[in-house]
Nucleic acid binder design. Structure first.
Length: 438
DNA sequence: TGAAATGTTGGGGCG
DNA sequence: ACGCCCCAACATTTC
């Protein structure tokens, strides 16, 4: 019987997995494969990176689930091209199925792999799984991509309505389990330990993707208050595909337009990155690269550690450092503070978040930072500067969240303001104005 | 998904 | 009763 491989990447689940479904339905025997990508892992600073532990645990579980149905998961560690050269030696296959990944590194990697596979007469067949709509599915009438969220969202919603009426399959689950018998039967594909890859187990554990119906339902009213358990915390699960984005979009469409909007933001930033890859290193709006950032290293250190003297900023940074998570409202406040009050390049903050956030996603993180600094799509105008006092009073009125992470608030061990708000605000306005008008 | 400055209005104290 | 001032509350403009 002809064999094909299904290559898991950021879609680490058996249920409702588009590419896997198509592989299983191809009528061929499906061999599941996962590669721990050396190129990515070597770039990580922290040898105890919680995301690596999370992926490792997830892969182990996936392996167990596949064994339970008589198959297994092949797990490899190395540079993808090198690994693929080995794999095609070991297994006689006619095609590789996978799900599309839109990040610049992934696109380039997949192009190289496709080229190699093609030289072996093996096709690389990619499906949409990671987003609801890909970058060419929601475009302006003139064919250009949207760069402003609100009209994008409108078009996204009409596209969804259209799909739902014309395509009864849309947003429904891919019934992978019906085709489990098409998985290849083999045993004991060996595992790879964290240690073999140069990592150690992290002490930070990731909450599983539980049912979050009530959170989605009440999302609109509760999402802005960091003391509440009001956000879904599903970011990391979307990132690695341990839940299906379609499943959550289905629920969101029924339960909460505000939550659905957050999923639309995710598609929005994904298509922005796909269409405008220069944003990885440059401002979306070129003239924002003229801003003479102060980039003071001591200020940056204090921001990182949560020692700015502004309780809401410090609480956010300490939440990030100790848990790998930060409430979204607080992400905006800390990002505004770094770029506008301290005049530090948004790329520094972006890189710090990339290192620390369990739910780090290049497109969303970059989008958020460029939004905060004013340089991005749909950007907050540069003169929109969050007042950390006002934000604290509005969103953490009784200091419940702040005290959780900054217990010494109000005592003399708590640091003085790193910079006066009014002074910093005026300095920012002058700096931005001069740079943008020059 | 901002905040501050400035403008306008209207009620009330007061001579 | 009237004009004047103050100021809170709200609206608009500006950054």
């Amino acid at each position: 019987m002809e064999k094909v491989i299904f290559w898991f990447r950021r879609d680490l689940r058996l249920a409702d997995n588009a590419g896997l479904y198509h592989a299983l339905r191809s009528g061929k025997e499906v061999i599941p494969l996962f590669i721990f990508d050396k190129e990515i892992l070597n770039g990580l600073k922290d040898r105890k990176d919680a995301r690596v532990t999370f992926i490792h645990d997830t892969i182990r579980q996936l392996k167990l689930d596949l064994r339970a149905i008589g198959s297994d998961l092949i797990v490899k560690f190395g540079s993808p091209l090198t690994v693929w050269k080995e794999v095609v030696e070991e297994y006689s296959i006619t095609a590789v199925f996978t799900n599309r990944d839109y990040e610049p590194y992934a696109k380039q990697r997949d192009e190289k792999i496709a080229e190699f596979l093609s030289s072996q007469n093996i096709g690389l067949i990619k499906h949409k799984d990671h987003v609801i709509f890909e970058s060419d599915e929601v475009l302006k009438d003139d064919g250009n991509p949207y760069t402003v969220f609100t009209p994008y969202k409108r078009k996204w919603l009409t596209t969804l309505a259209k799909e739902n009426t014309t395509n009864s399959y849309f947003l429904s689950s891919y019934p992978t389990s019906k085709y489990h018998s098409n998985f290849s039967k083999f045993e004991n594909g060996p595992s790879i330990s964290l240690e073999q890859m140069g990592f150690e187990r992290s002490s930070i554990s990731i909450p599983p993707a539980e049912t979050t119906q009530s959170i989605i339902k009440n999302y609109h009213d509760r999402r802005n208050f960091p003391a509440l358990n009001g956000t879904s915390r599903l970011g990391i699960h979307f990132r690695f595909g341990t839940i299906s984005i379609r499943e959550k979009a289905r629920k969101a469409a029924k339960l909460s337009e505000t939550y659905l909007s957050e999923l639309i933001w995710r598609d929005f930033y994904s298509q922005i990155l796909d269409h405008f890859p220069h944003i990885v290193t440059q401002a979306f709006r070129a003239k924002y690269d003229r801003i003479p950032w102060r980039n003071n290293k001591e200020d940056f250190e204090k921001w990182c550690k949560g020692e700015t003297g502004y309780p809401i900023v410090d609480a956010g940074m300490r939440e990030l450092n100790s848990t790998g998570h930060m409430h979204n409202r607080v992400r905006m406040i800390t990002a505004s503070f770094l770029t506008k009050h301290l005049l530090i390049d948004w790329r520094w903050g972006e890189a710090y978040f990339a290192e620390k956030l369990l739910d780090f996603d290049l497109a969303s993180n970059n989008g958020g930072w460029q939004w905060a600094s004013g340089s991005g799509t749909d950007a907050a105008p540069y003169f929109r500067i969050f007042n950390p006092h006002t934000q604290l009073d509005k969103f953490d009125k009784n200091r419940e969240y702040t005290k959780r992470f900054v217990p010494e608030i109000g005592t003399d061990t708590y640091p003085d303001y790193i910079v006066d708000h009014k002074f910093a605000r005026e300095r920012c306005l002058e700096t931005y104005k001069a740079a943008l008008n020059s």
